[in-house]
Design a protein around this nucleic acid. Structure first.
Length: 472
RNA sequence: GCCAGAGUAGCUCAGUGGCAGAGCAGGGGACUCAUAAGCCCUUGGUCGGGGGUUCAAAUCCCUCCUCUGGCACCA
């Protein structure tokens, strides 16, 4: 039995509400997942939220509520957005869920017992106001710390460390042997360079005196788990790593883990891969990382006047989920940054969806009804079958390369071809001449049968097909 | 400073040694099934600058500039 297509995205940090970048990433994952489903493959698409950590605790304190209340409130905003954006996820990850916290504890215990986690004392300068250790780069020219940090004290603290450096050689070897493990290729290079610079181990604990909002270390109740160590595990905890081993064996490794370029190195490319290795995952069970770019707002009118933010929920309300999804997928080149433009969104919706695809279906259905009362005879073969097959082929190849923009280009080219075919065959002329009835039958049913039609994944739903052009 | 990415038409981007391209926007035309949509034709480029290799460079090499990311450094 074929392994399900398992795809994940980064879980979103619940210290602030979602923005357009969060939306882009989930749409990308959703579209990849839908493509595989449309091809008949079983798919598991996992998204979720990261609810622990210092920033959540701080934001909650500012808002005057408990961390769990704050996290749940922001979580609700993410859930609402995914519903509005029609994100068809199969599983939902919340790092406060028992399935996750128990898995994290089990993993910590395992690594601790194997000697991959050790306790050490470390001293450094600590900002009481910011609640964080300062590094040399926070130090001023005269060697002092900026008043922005408030009171700075030298603090010596015991913590638990994960033996990252022990696995550095393995990681280098793995990456060299698996260039396909990080896409696009230039991100592989970036990660490869970053691994070379890896020196220290990873501190994976925080004393409760400093940070209470997290998963308690199973072997030392005085500490909670560092948020990245906690968060990364979601990819396997919600795949059933400790809770449903049979399920997990089918799912893992992830075919793609969709992440932003900011969290490739060191979080996913180093911490995560080494964590898996430390848990004895062999090379062939390492996930593939798909690294996307940012949605930039620089130079955009609405961002300047609106304080440099574009609220995806607002865009959905204004234009609909399909228009936003189509725009982002059609114009973002996977891995590259893109410039967000509301004008471009409107232009894409109008030209490709409303005028191209929408009008094609409208005129096709209109003529079928008008000339043949909606009853068409199936022809032996269709002149559109070959171009349709080619479009499907290009579409699939593009998705195999993780390039939805290229897949949509293929679909749009086929729509244009169909509109050209109608002009060329001019059914409205044939309809006026009874002698051309047979020809009209052939032309009318030229539309390819379902199995050869354009892939379902990218086809806007029917109620959207009737939408007219919009303007902003 | 180091390592990468980007720089091609007004806009968004393809194009990695062989006559500079697509879509949109702009201009013109024929048509009338259709959502003032669609179709055909068309204007528009020092391929960031400079140097080099080559019969031939957007493409390969060197160098510089601008923007972006990571790391380092400085504050």
């Amino acid at each position: 039995m074929e392994k399900p297509f398992y795809i994940t995205t980064a879980i979103d940090y619940t210290n602030a509400p979602p923005h357009i970048g969060h939306a882009y990433e989930k749409i990308l994952g959703d579209v990849m997942a839908r493509d595989r489903r449309a091809r008949g493959r079983e798919v598991v698409y996992l998204i979720g939220v990261d609810q622990h950590g210092q920033k959540v605790q701080q934001s909650a304190a500012r808002a005057g509520v408990r961390p769990e209340v704050f996290a749940q409130d922001v979580t609700a905003k993410f859930l609402d957005l995914w519903k509005r954006l029609d994100i068809a996820y199969d599983r939902w990850a919340e790092t406060t869920a028992p399935q996750h916290t128990e898995c994290v504890r089990a993993i910590l215990n395992q690594l601790h017992q194997k000697g991959k986690i050790y306790k050490a004392r470390h001293g450094g300068y600590y900002s009481v106001r910011q609640e964080q250790f300062l590094t040399e780069k926070d130090r001023g020219a005269d060697g002092s710390f900026s008043p922005d940090w408030g009171e700075v004290v030298f603090l010596e603290e015991e913590n638990y460390y994960f033996r990252l450096t022990e696995f550095k050689d393995w990681l280098v070897g793995f990456l060299e042997a698996h260039r396909e493990s990080v896409l696009p290729a230039f991100r592989w290079t970036e990660l490869r360079n970053a691994v070379e610079r890896l020196t220290g181990d990873l501190c994976i604990s925080r004393p409760k005196s400093r940070l209470a909002w997290g998963i308690e270390l199973p072997f030392d109740p005085e500490f909670v788990t560092y948020v990245w160590f906690d968060a990364l595990i979601n990819y396997i905890s919600f795949a059933g790593y400790t809770s449903h081993p049979v399920d997990f064996e089918r799912l893992w490794p992830a075919d793609y883990q969709v992440i932003g370029k900011d969290i490739l190195a060191p979080a996913h490319g180093i911490y995560w891969l080494i964590m898996l290795r430390a848990l004895d995952f062999p090379d062939e069970r390492m996930p593939r990382l798909l690294v996307h770019g940012y949605i930039n707002l620089r130079g955009d009118k609405i961002s300047k006047s609106a304080g440099n933010t574009v609220d995806p929920a607002e865009l959905v309300g204004k234009y609909g989920a399909e228009a936003l999804r189509y725009y982002l997928m059609r114009e973002a080149v996977t891995g590259q940054d893109m410039e967000f433009s509301e004008d471009r969104l409107v232009a894409r919706h109008n030209s490709d969806l409303a005028n191209g695809l929408g009008n094609l279906l409208n005129r096709t259905l209109g003529m079928a009804k008008r000339y043949r009362q909606g009853v068409l005879k199936k022809p032996a073969d269709s002149p559109l079958a070959a171009p349709a097959a080619e479009a499907v082929s290009r579409h699939r190849a593009a998705f195999d390369r993780c390039e939805p923009h290229a897949a949509l280009e293929a679909a749009a080219a086929f729509v244009a071809h169909c509109n050209g075919f109608i002009e060329e065959s001019a059914p409205w002329k044939l309809a006026k001449d009874p002698a051309q009835a047979e020809r009209l039958d052939a032309v009318s049913m030229a539309w390819p049968n379902r199995s050869a039609s354009s892939p379902r994944s990218m086809r806007p739903r029917s109620h959207r097909l009737r939408s007219r052009s919009v303007s902003n």
